Computed example of a mutant assay.
Amino acid sequence: MSLNDDAVLVLKGYEAIEDGQSALRQTYLEHLASHPDGMWKSCGAGHLTASALVVDAQRGRVLLTLHKKLGLWLQMGGHCEPQDATLAAAALREATEESGIRGLSLLPGGPIVLDRHPIPAPCHWHLDVQYAALAPAGSAPAISDESLDLRWFAYDEVAAVADASVVRLVERTRAAL
């Protein structure tokens, strides 16, 4: 099965709880149907990305990265790579690479939320499929080359440092926990 095929299955199975998520899921599916390269960074019309919010549920906190290019506190994530067999595998790979934490495990049940956001040209959109990953007890993160900083934030601190999309991801993740 191709990564595109996996993405279509994941999106068709995604249970959109809040308003707007069903329409967004349909936008993602239409994008993949009309762009055979819609999984890859090279797709100028936009492409799917995979991300994961790293959670330390025992201590009530999440790990955010201060993105080097955007200067924003975000969850770990990025572009799909040819070696990624599934969207979930891409999200887990990105979370592991950017957090430096080994042994992360995705919450069962698939994506937590979908988020479509504009990015600078030559591409115009990221169609992000967002998961949540549990960190093993006592995990010590290590900053990557893609980040200016990496820091744990208590759930209630996120709104003060991150945008609405990250706050929504934290809220949905907490509900899934």
Rank of each mutant, 00 (worst) to 15 (best):
E94I: 01
M39I: 09
C123L: 03
D128L: 04
I112Y: 08
R174M: 14
R151F: 04
G60A: 11
D128P: 03
L32K: 10
L11D: 09
A162T: 11
K69Y: 10
P120N: 14
H31M: 06
S105W: 00
V129M: 12
A133Y: 05
A137Y: 03
L150S: 07
A88V: 00
A121M: 05
Q75T: 09
P118W: 04
V158I: 09
L53I: 11
I17L: 15
L53T: 11
S139N: 08
T86K: 04
A137K: 10
Y155E: 08
I119S: 06
A175G: 05
A132C: 11
E171M: 08
L3T: 06
L24S: 12
S165Y: 12
W125P: 01
K41L: 11
L87Y: 01
Q130P: 01
A57L: 11
V10W: 03
L106A: 00
L92M: 02
L127P: 06
V62H: 13
Q75I: 05
D84H: 07
M76H: 09
R25V: 11
E146H: 14
H117Y: 15
L104E: 00
L74A: 08
H126Q: 13
L70F: 15
Y155S: 08
G20K: 14
T27D: 11
G60W: 09
S144L: 03
R174F: 04
R168N: 11
L106N: 02
T86M: 02
A121C: 01
K68E: 10
P36N: 02
A176W: 02
E98R: 12
M39L: 15
A90V: 02
Q21E: 15
Q130I: 12
A16K: 13
P141R: 07
L53S: 10
Q26G: 06
E81C: 02
A90L: 05
L87S: 01
R116Y: 06
A52G: 07
H124F: 03
E98D: 10
G100T: 01
M1C: 00
R172H: 13
A91T: 03
H126D: 07
D6N: 14
D156C: 05
N4W: 05
M39E: 03
Q58P: 07
L48H: 01
D19W: 10
S22Q: 15
P108K: 08
A95S: 08
V158D: 10
G109C: 04
G13H: 12
I112A: 07
V170F: 12
L32M: 09
